[in-house]
Write a protein that binds this DNA or RNA. Structure first.
Lengths: 356, 356
DNA sequence: AGCCGCACTGAAAGCGTTTTCCCATTGCGC
DNA sequence: GCGCAATGGGAAAACGCTTTCAGTGCGGCT
């Protein structure tokens, strides 16, 4: 007496995707033969049948069901890319490199944004494991000391045959890309000290991040060697963003007005500092204060004055990371150093003469 | 006599992923029960067994095999995001919005970069169809007149139950977001005409793009209404990038040196134009030439002078696009207008007095 | 001429889930 | 105290594909 029409069959028929079975039928061959033609099997099929299958597949716009395929082959053509903030040029650049290699290898990229929550990072790795992703790339810098939860999750992933490449991480038993952060920090110290700066402020991102630590320590190390001491009073910690940099610059100058040079640990913060110096503090760059960034984002040469910064080949890092993860599994874990390079532009000059 | 050990079993055992079967065994229950506990089934299971299963699953670090799940449910939690260039702030911003909604709905995002090749776009949609993606978002502007191949592919995708949302496309029978491009172009015309400019140059992206057409026509239309005629001589077409904008600006000023205002059809091109005016042409902005962009990328307020531009709420567009694609299927296709807004900054002033 | 081996096709197994279907057990009303 | 509905558990089917295994027809060799 149910007045609903076809309630039973209405549920499980939402999709009308073409199956291989239909293609086979249409071509008048068996399922097996159709499969052999359409998946690049090592078995060969007569020209005649091959054409019939291809034709039928094209006519029906058949595409093979990737999940079904993944199920039987227990692998996919998916790679995961985990970043902290999608809308950050640093990650965009790395992502571009990853996408390029992915395209060449016919891989699909799953993009996961952690929104800076470490918990989400672990969750995403788990979900990528569930997807049977072939590889995962951790593009965002890790935390010093590592995270046990992440380590466990990655172990489970690799145990399952997944590959992992991490950028600027520590203590993970996976392929790792080590950007020249320390080396870059040293170059900045050398540059600023060479110009004659003795009172230098440093605007740091979260000190828990490996990249931040490396950049900072490289800088402090070399500065000390050159006789420039940067006390903790001249360092501030803030979000690794433009706004973080802006606020940090204001705080820093309120505290230590005598600073003649500013090292922001990434370009985003440097941009914020530039804005603060111009709009909030009314100081000229580089006439009053020299500013240095890190990363060499494309925007660095569009601001005024053009930003002196340390170039990291981010796209290259992305490419290399994926290639590493796609490469010889038996050689893993490997580490790959990617050098950085100081790019001097207009935002740095010798310090102004002391008045009086 | 084969000396190779276990050659047979070495091949098909690369992965040792934990299966539901193992969890069930470990918990001492049937497969069905384990499934009911771990997938949010409507059937309920005794507290006792539930705990045993949960415990076993946690102990074994079980995650369910997504492809297998997808196979039986014939749907996934994957959404595709198709952009032209990953490393373009316009798309990063849209992607950020998409990711945000995806996170809230527990969806995974597959990012596809077409590298400006229309062929790749169609291929990616096909691959997303193969993946049984729940929805696809076409973030990159479409071509005027549309593309039959793309239309067919999208038809196949929707026929299969997939949802589609497109940004700035025309003639597709899918949910579409219409950014206020025309309206933004009109606002620019009004602004520049209002300042007194009469000789205005326009730097266009590829004229085949819907966004370019809309922005351009909105501008020309309103300019004409206000008595300002922009001949074809004052328009150039180039790549929709910084470099494209730079080259275009040089070409344009070589041809028509009397131009007092420049409208670049996106911020990337405007940045290039700014660089050209400063470095190649030696003209002051805004003293000699006023410059207007489009999009209001974050960088627009970091350049000097800060760029007058049209703000498009890109993250919002990303969010809306995904929500549209996730929304009521029976209401599709729908169109959603997203307004733009002129943001006046320092790069525009009245034209310089004519000398002599 | 008969047999063997080769080259190809087709039937069927199996991948790991979810979901039906069926059975046993319990609680309830009479 | 008996039957019935309701409840919860397990066996098995199904999802769409790849791949093994068996089978069939053919040519070449003795």
């Amino acid at each position: 007496m149910q007045s609903q029409v076809n309630r039973r069959s209405a549920r499980p028929r939402p999709s009308s995707a073409v199956t291989l079975q239909q293609v086979a039928q249409d071509a008048g061959v068996s399922l097996a033969t159709a499969s052999r033609v359409l998946s690049d099997s090592d078995r060969n099929v007569t020209q005649e049948l091959q054409e019939r299958v291809l034709e039928a597949a094209a006519r029906l716009r058949y595409v093979s069901n990737a999940p079904a395929r993944a199920l039987v082959q227990s692998t996919t053509s998916i790679v995961g890319l985990v970043v902290h903030d999608v809308n950050d040029a640093y990650y965009s650049a790395i992502a571009a490199g990853v996408m390029e290699v992915a395209r060449d290898h016919k891989l699909l990229v799953m993009l996961a944004g952690t929104f800076h929550e470490p918990g989400l990072q672990v969750e995403y790795v788990a979900r990528l494991r569930a997807q049977r992703a072939r590889a995962v790339i951790l593009a965002g810098s890790g935390f010093t000391g590592g995270s046990p939860a992440l380590t466990q999750e990655l172990d489970a992933f690799t145990a399952q045959g997944g590959r992992v490449a991490a950028v600027a991480h520590q203590g993970l038993a996976v392929d790792t890309i080590v950007p020249g952060n320390r080396e870059g920090g040293r170059a900045v110290a050398e540059h600023l000290a060479g110009l004659g700066h003795t009172e230098i402020g440093v605007i740091c991102g979260p000190l828990a991040l490996v990249s931040v630590q490396d950049r900072l320590h490289g800088f402090l190390e070399r500065a000390a060697e050159l006789g420039v001491v940067v006390t903790e009073h001249h360092r501030v910690e803030a979000d690794f963003t433009r706004d973080g940099g802006r606020a940090a610059a204001v705080r820093l100058f309120r505290r230590s007005p005598g600073i003649t040079a500013l090292f922001a640990l990434n370009d985003a913060m440097a941009l914020g500092a530039l804005a603060a110096l111009r709009d909030d503090l009314g100081r000229g760059v580089p006439s009053d204060v020299s500013v240095v960034g890190f990363d060499d984002l494309p925007v660095a040469c569009d601001v005024t004055p053009a930003l002196t910064t340390v170039r990291l080949p981010l796209e290259e890092i992305g490419r290399r990371a994926l290639l590493l993860a796609l490469g010889d599994a038996t050689a893993s874990p490997r580490t790959l150093d990617v050098p950085s390079r100081l790019v001097v532009r207009a935002s740095t000059t010798p310090p102004p003469r002391v008045t009086g």
